[in-house]
Design a protein around this nucleic acid. Structure first.
Lengths: 130, 130
DNA sequence: CGGCATCCAAATAGATACTG
DNA sequence: CAGTATCTATTTGGATGCCG
């Protein structure tokens, strides 16, 4: 391969790489962070109330949950529904757009499970060495 | 559906949800954050040198890249190779384990691209309204 | 080139108390 | 129940200088 051709290929390669990086960066901006995916997962299982979600998403504080829900609403993943009455009941619902995350969630879940398995195997190997 | 059956189903549902949440939480712990996936993507395209990676992963500082590379090495995704000589050359290489992230990366890339498209469409709609 | 050390600013998040 | 307010502690990260 002559060096001119190499340069052209490298350029295309770099551009493809940049496109992928930009996409992943966009994705991380919207759904990155410790909580957003977990909240969506919990809601996809039917949790709608603030306290329900907080109970299932272990470790999240009310303050953080509150601000995450706001961001998810702004970004079109969920909607907050306030039903008048005594007492007022507030429910959060997934919007169709959050369905588009299904593949991402599935891939992460699958990977997370096999990763946990790997860690477990490694730590039991460590033990058997001692 | 009687309430006993409902409770049993709810319990199974909650447990499945917890399993998924735990998996995703594990995954986020290992590969979450702003940079890790991006570094792996850049390396998968052939970038091996510190400065190369820094150039391609826009916005990352040397200090942060350095610490991220260390974590990636500890977690078995990459290996640091030091070639003696003048000057010493240092290269980072992906280990086979990082191949297991391919599905995750693909899903995130795909989603990120369509998300960017959605944002662009929305903002051009906004403009046409004014 | 591939970092590490230091200092400092900003963002993030926990704890606690409080409200309608 | 569904949050908000406040305060503080911790984490994170940028800037800079230095080193072999």
């Amino acid at each position: 391969m002559d060096s001119e051709k190499k340069q052209i290929e490298n350029k295309a390669f770099t551009e493809e790489c940049n496109a992928v990086l930009m996409a992943v960066s966009d994705a991380l901006y919207a759904i990155g962070g410790k909580w957003k995916l977990m909240i969506i997962i919990s809601m996809a299982r039917g949790n709608k109330r603030f306290t329900e979600i907080q109970r299932q998403v272990k470790g999240i504080s009310a303050r953080v949950l509150s601000s995450e829900l706001k961001e998810l609403e702004i970004n079109g993943f969920i909607i907050k529904k306030v039903a008048v009455g005594y007492p007022v009941t507030i429910e959060y619902e997934l919007l169709p757009y959050s369905q588009t995350l299904q593949e991402v969630v599935e891939a992460m879940t699958k990977w997370g499970m096999q990763h946990r398995q790997k860690i477990k195997t490694e730590s039991s190997l460590d033990k058997s060495k001692n």
